[in-house]
Nucleic acid binder design. Structure first.
Lengths: 113, 113
DNA sequence: TTCATATTTCCAGAATAGTCGAAATATATG
DNA sequence: CATATATTTCGACTATTCTGGAAATATGAA
C-alpha cells in the first residue's frame, strides 16, 4: 500500500462517526448493511451519512452494491489488511534488525450458513 | 486500548507531516531525534512542528525527554502496537468465528551497539 | 404514467485544524 | 549576571472538514 492511500485510510477511520460506521459494517459481516439501516443505527442525517460513506469509499474501506432501491454497504477487509500491513512495515523498516512480524490476516466473519 | 484513544492515535497519524514525523522517529530508533533535527528534516516552522508533536504526544505515539537545552523525541512502539491491536480486534470481533490473529508485535529497531 | 422509497448531490453556514511570526520560557555558557 | 540556543506558547489568519435542509436522481410498484 502506498503512503498516500494509507493516509486516506487513516483519515477515513480517524473520525468518531466513521470509525463507528466501519465497525458496524464489520460486525454485519458479509451481508453488510443498507444505507438506510446505517442512518437508523447512527441517527445521522442522510446527507451527513452519505458524506462519511463517500470518504470511506474513496479510501477503499467500504464497498457497496445496489439491490433495487437499496444500496448495501460492506467493510472491505482486504483494504483494512493492507492498512495494517502498511503500519506494521512502517513501524520497523528503514533500519536494520526488523522486529515486526507480518501483519495479521483479517478475513470477514461469515454469518453461520 | 479504548476507542477514544484509538481515535486520537488514528487522527495523529492521519496527517502527511505527522505520519512522516512518526516514521522519521521510528527509523531513528531508540536514540530518537531532537526537535531541532526534526525541524531540519521536515523544513517546517518551529511553531508548526511543535503543534504536530503535541498532537502525537497527546495521542501517546511520541514521548520525549529533555537533555539540557535539547528535547529528544522517540516513537512509542507500545502505543503503536496497541493501536494495531485495536484495529485488528475491531476488524473481527463482535461476531462469531473470529478470523484475526493477534496483532503483530512491534519493537523498536535498536541501533547497532 | 404517477406515486412512494432510497440515496445522493448541492449549497451554505458552523466548527475544527493547520500555519507561522513574534513573544515567552527554559537551559547552558561565559 | 548577560548572552546565546532550543523549544514552546500566543495570536491571528487561512484552509479544510463537518453538518444537514432542500432539491435532484434512481429504482420499484400501482
Amino acid at each position: 500500500m502506498k503512503s498516500k492511500i494509507a493516509l486516506e485510510c487513516l483519515s477515513a477511520l480517524a473520525h468518531e462517526h466513521r470509525l463507528n460506521l466501519f465497525r458496524l459494517l464489520v460486525q454485519a459481516g458479509d451481508e453488510g448493511m443498507a444505507v438506510g439501516e446505517l442512518v437508523e443505527a447512527t441517527g445521522l442525517a442522510g446527507a451527513t451519512l452519505t458524506n462519511h460513506l463517500n470518504i470511506l469509499r474513496r479510501a477503499g474501506m467500504v464497498t457497496d452494491e445496489r439491490r433495487g432501491r437499496v444500496i448495501q454497504c460492506r467493510a472491505d477487509y482486504t483494504q483494512m489488511d493492507a492498512l495494517l500491513g502498511f503500519l506494521t512495515e512502517n513501524c520497523c523498516t528503514g533500519s536494520p534488525g526488523k522486529n515486526c512480524k507480518p501483519a495479521s490476516s483479517c478475513k470477514p466473519t461469515r454469518k453461520t450458513p
